[in-house]
Nucleic acid binder design. Structure first.
Length: 734
DNA sequence: TTTGCTTATCTTTTT
DNA sequence: GATAAGCAAA
């Protein structure tokens, strides 16, 4: 066994956490405080103490995170760390449900619905129930999915979810209440589970079966959970039930970094942990090893403005460094040029491409930058963008594979049949109705009787499927055979980038080679989609990432884009304190990724769909940072001269070069909606009827001064609104 | 029954 | 600027 001096490698608090062998432990760890390190060394220590690796379970936010940790642990005490069970909650639940799912009436080869599948299925069922249709406005697909998902995660009351998050959809309540049970039943009958079901069903299996709990308790003697602030109630229950009999659970997290509440996560979870496990030992890691002092001063200032005070105060261990930079770009193209310049400069200074990351709120914010980087020949990877599995051609091919596995998979059938020219919704329905009735659906298809022009194509598909059924081939060949049928359709529908898509299909076959059955490949693709490129190749590239996908990672240099009102906080979240607070934590997460170089950028003009270029104010979160903690980029040359306290917020960008007459300029608001800044004073006068995107129509009943008014909404009741933030419009009373 | 054209709406983050 | 519903023509 390799000899490790744990005392030398860890600080006293980390060492305490690592050395506790039994009982529940809660580690509250600040950003950059070495929580990954702590988990890695604890795994190593357990194994050094003679715990068998397969008795340990390490649950992380991504599968990659678990793999990285176990690889590091292996370097410390040896390869047997690779045998530790590790992965995501969803992946683990899936594995367990394949084994124990029969206890709640699921076969072991059930199908996982990814998000797009869930959207399509809900839409289909809503149409069947005639909830959509002429003259009826039903919530959009993605809204629908969010509501259903939230409902399942928060105890099953649609009414509560609608009241809290979607008051404008209160009229759809009866429809939703009809839809949800139908959706539930459909999934059960067709052996489908969506992401929520994986967790909820696994919880139910544990809850209802003492023998499963006991077997879990003796199988995994040590459970560790990373990023615990981003788990939901079901996950907390699962942990509790699985630790049955030993309570050797260590959870690690940071309440200030909770950014996934839209997915049902609740950071109060982490505070409730000691209530769930009596005798919990709490350890705080408050030393920051990642960032320099000036960076930390700045990030501390960001989180200091949070409404809820957090549990710890971070102190930097690294001295030296410069305050973070602030750059005001003219507009987004200029911002992209600036960032590309900085990247090239950093590379010249000896940074590796993989030392640098560029972060932003939403995928499309990096559009201009991607163009600029490509133009200069700088290679990058984008995380959190469009995944391979989300593109149409990949989904088409996987749908063919699914039909082969499960000939009753309605969604996949309809996807495939609609590919065929001159075959539409009605014919697809008719064909499926026939298939479902017949004893042998594939046989039925290969002899399908019709006068329509597409008859031959459909029968051809049937005979290919029949052939593939009868002869066992390996997964790669199988995909190739299916692809042969698919190619003409691909060519017809996507003729402009046909070759590129063909290449990606070949890539999919490459992935398939790693699996020996289609069921586990489909599950893996849904739970942990592989990146476009191989991980090996990705290793030394510049990273472009959404702030969410940057969680848990660090870089020497970080540039954060588009910190302007209307971009960040996201307009969709600018209403409601809870959402704003989460956006603030998100900003905190993004800024704490930087070790040395940190730069905030915002464009003085933002382009808004349809309207063109409009002036934008710096993000409210930037404005909250005391000016002396930042330095303007252009001052860098003047030996780090600090910002003029009063004036940096009014940095003059030459308006005339951009938009002609400054007096005509409208202000773009926090919510991305325009209004004339000086405003015609009478627009929001007492008694006027107004409309709010969430609360619907209402009447102004009071003017509180300082741009605040009180409105009595027809449905949502009385609310106080700030005119600078609320998306209000006047309803014409004529 | 399918397809192509017009119009209205909404624009985030992800296992 | 994409997406879905609605409508008219083939």
């Amino acid at each position: 066994m390799v000899c490790v001096d744990f005392k030398k490698e860890l600080n006293p608090e980390q060492l305490t956490a690592v050395e506790i062998m039994d009982g529940p432990v809660l580690v509250i760890a600040g950003a950059g405080s070495g929580k990954t390190r702590t988990l890695v060394y604890r795994v190593a220590r357990l194994i050094q103490q003679g715990v068998e690796p397969d008795k340990i379970l390490l649950l992380t936010f991504t599968r990659k995170a678990a793999a990285t940790m176990l690889a590091r642990a292996s370097q410390i005490v040896g390869y047997q760390c690779q045998q530790v069970a590790g992965g995501t909650f969803h992946g683990f639940a899936h594995k367990m449900l394949r084994r124990y799912g029969h206890l709640i009436g699921y076969p072991s080869n059930f199908t996982i619905l990814d998000r797009a599948d869930m959207l399509d299925l809900l839409h289909l069922l809503a149409r069947q129930l005639e909830l959509t249709g002429p003259g009826r406005q039903f919530p959009r697909k993605s809204t629908l999915a969010s509501i259903v998902s939230k409902t399942e995660n928060c105890g099953g009351s649609v009414l509560k979810v609608i009241e809290q998050g979607y008051p404008h959809l209160i009229g759809e309540l009866p429809g939703l209440e009809k839809l949800i049970p139908v959706y539930r039943r459909y999934k059960k009958v067709h052996a489908l589970m969506d992401y929520d079901d994986l967790l909820l069903n696994w919880r139910d299996v544990l809850k209802e079966n003492a023998e499963v709990r006991e077997s879990m308790g003796s199988w995994f003697r040590y459970i560790m959970v990373d990023e615990y602030q981003d788990t939901n109630a079901a996950q907390a229950e699962i942990v509790h039930l699985m630790a049955c009999g030993h309570h050797n659970v260590m959870v690690v997290g940071d309440d200030a970094q909770s950014i996934y509440s839209f997915r049902g996560a609740n950071f109060k979870n982490i505070m409730d942990f000691p209530d769930m496990f009596s005798g919990t030992r709490i350890i705080k890691l408050e030393k920051n090893y990642r960032s320099t002092q000036p960076n930390l001063d700045c990030t501390n200032a960001i989180i200091a403005n949070a409404r809820e005070k957090f549990t710890k105060q971070l102190t930097a261990q690294r001295k030296g460094g410069n305050p973070p930079y602030l750059y005001t770009a003219k507009e987004e193209v200029d911002q992209a040029r600036f960032v590309a310049d900085r990247v090239q400069e950093l590379l010249k200074d000896g940074f590796k491409p993989s030392d640098i990351a560029i972060l932003f709120r939403a995928g499309f914010h990096s559009f201009h930058l991607e163009t600029e980087l490509s133009r200069r020949g700088i290679i990058f990877v984008k995380r959190g963008g469009l995944r391979l599995i989300e593109s149409a051609h990949i989904k088409d091919l996987l749908a063919l594979l699914r039909i082969l596995i499960n000939p009753l998979d309605r969604l996949s059938w309809s996807r495939i049949l609609l590919l065929i020219e001159r075959l539409g919704l009605k014919s697809a329905e008719k064909i499926f109705a026939q298939l479902i009735k017949s004893e042998d659906p594939v046989e039925c298809l290969s002899t399908y009787n019709t006068k329509a022009a597409w008859g031959e194509t459909v029968r051809g598909l049937g005979s290919i499927l029949k052939r593939l059924h009868s002869m066992p081939v390996d997964l790669g060949d199988l995909l190739l055979q299916l692809e042969k049928w698919y190619r003409p359709h691909l060519k017809r529908i996507h003729h402009e980038d046909y070759p590129k898509r063909l290449q990606e299909l070949a890539h999919l076959r490459g992935i398939a080679a790693r699996y020996d059955d289609a069921v586990s490949m489909l599950a893996d693709l849904a739970l942990d989609p592989p990146e476009q490129e191989d991980i090996e190749k990705e290793r030394d590239k510049l990273v472009l990432s959404t702030m969410h996908s940057a969680k848990g990672l660090e870089w020497k240099a970080v540039l954060i884009l588009s910190l302007a009102e209307g971009r960040f906080p996201s307009p969709a979240a600018s209403f409601g304190n809870k959402e704003i607070e989460e956006e603030r934590r998100l900003f905190y997460v993004a800024a704490t990724r930087a070790k040395d170089f940190l730069c905030f950028c915002y464009p003085a003009f933002v382009s808004v769909s349809g309207t063109g270029l409009l002036p934008a104010r710096p993000s409210r979160f930037l404005e909250e940072i005391p000016a002396e903690l930042l330095q303007l980029w252009k001052n860098r040359i003047d030996a780090g001269e600090k910002i003029d306290q009063k004036n940096w917020r009014n940095i003059s960008v030459d308006n005339r070069t951009l938009s002609g007459h400054p007096e005509n300029i409208q202000q773009i608001n926090s919510d991305g909606i325009l209004r004339s800044d000086k405003g015609s004073p009478g627009v929001f006068a007492l008694g006027k009827r107004v409309r709010h995107p969430i609360f619907g129509p209402g009447r102004i009943i009071k003017d509180n001064g300082s741009r605040k008014i009180q409105v009595l909404f027809d449905v949502a009741g009385e609310k106080t609104l700030h005119l600078d933030y609320a998306k209000l419009s006047v309803i014409d009373s004529g």
